[in-house]
Simulated scan of single mutants.
Amino acid sequence: MGAIEVRDLFKYYKGSSYPALRGIDLILDTGEVLGLTGHNGAGKSTLMGVINGSLAMSSGVVRFDGVDLTPMLARRCTATMDQMHAPLKGVTPSSAIRVAAEIRGASQSAADRITNTLLEYFEISEYADVRSEELSGGVRRLVAFCMCECQGARTSLLDEPTNDVDPRRRKLLWSYIREQATGGRSYIVSTHNVGEVSQYTDHQVVLSNGSVVYDGSSLSRASSHGNNVYVDVQGSCKLEALVGKLGFDRVRLHGNQLVVPRQHVERVIGLLMDDGEEGRNTVIQISRTPGFEALYDELARGEDYHGH
């Protein structure tokens, strides 16, 4: 039994005959970081709204540790960072985080300690007393994240947490999430950043038109049955030009990963290694496991993957 269990979840908005969520099944385990992605309008924010109790489901089941969802239970067990910027007008980062902690039950001294710890962790202490109107979008995003995290909820629901955040603090944000997950907290992170989903999450779910089209992990991708082999190439080899030479049906390039039909792998490897000086400096790794970026692109093309 997971920390959160969703079964056969449907959500219809008023006046619509088309479901925003269609039969969603999902399990989030304790200490797990789940990456939730999909196209605009796929249902990601709606799903998180149902889980945090702000949206009523039309039918289905959501359970926290085996107990059926109620709005009160959801407020006690979850914290949410919305996709939109937190309403910080007229306040400073330190006051916003401190008040959020106190609202969630922290004493004044505990709220001060939590606020200072979070500001220091994300290297934004210099902005502690700056009015929000003078802050960059990235700093405001980090303040919203801190407001969500100040309570230490068992499960955090984060909608596009790294939007506008600079590369250095993006790494800090993900490091914080991983540290907290090691301590037993769980996360659902909704994002269009497929690279971050691949690098930092334990479990990936892709939504399309309100339905789950992929639910798995790198391990389950490795065990899925498919005809493709995934060739990771590191070096100066000009992969775009090479793909143009191959002419094989369905050979595709995703970053530094080639998606190759199994029957053509030997030929592809030969061409890579024969590419003059660049070929001699090329490092190749072959896998039956697609990188998540490649998998996401295949899903967008309508190809079928089953990671259950």
Rank of each mutant, 00 (worst) to 15 (best):
G38C: 03
L299G: 03
G53R: 02
V259S: 00
I97M: 14
M1N: 15
A74C: 09
D129G: 07
R280M: 15
M273K: 15
T117C: 08
I51V: 13
G302Q: 05
G53N: 03
G270C: 02
S175N: 15
I269M: 15
E32S: 03
G184C: 09
F64D: 06
D304M: 11
S287T: 13
K14C: 00
E133A: 09
S94L: 07
R168T: 11
F145P: 11
L172Q: 10
K89Y: 12
V189R: 01
G307S: 01
I286S: 04
D275H: 13
N193W: 07
G137A: 09
S59R: 12
E32D: 06
R154N: 15
T115G: 05
T78Y: 10
M273F: 15
G53K: 02
H225A: 12
V91H: 06
F122P: 00
R104T: 02
S94K: 14
D275T: 08
R141A: 09
L55E: 12
G226M: 02
D129L: 07
N40C: 04
D25R: 01
M84C: 14
Y200M: 07
D112C: 12
R22M: 04
I286M: 14
S156E: 05
N193K: 09
D129R: 13
E120Y: 01
D297K: 10
D232C: 08
L36P: 02
R262I: 06
T115Y: 02
L295D: 04
N40D: 09
N163F: 02
G90S: 09
V212A: 00
A100C: 06
R63G: 02
A79H: 01
V251H: 11
M1Y: 14
V139E: 03
S208C: 13
V6P: 06
D274R: 09
K245S: 13
D249R: 15
D274A: 11
V268W: 00
C150T: 10
D65K: 14
T162M: 05
T37I: 10
R131W: 15
V189L: 08
E298A: 11
S54G: 07
D68I: 11
T289C: 13
V6M: 14
L118C: 11
G66Y: 07
R168W: 12
T282W: 12
S136I: 12
N40I: 05
C150Q: 04
S287E: 07
T37C: 15
I103F: 10
E196L: 08
F248Q: 08
S59L: 00
G43Y: 06
L28K: 07
I51W: 11
D159G: 06
S94F: 11
G35P: 10
T92N: 01
I177S: 07
L34Y: 03
E120G: 05
T201L: 03
E5C: 12
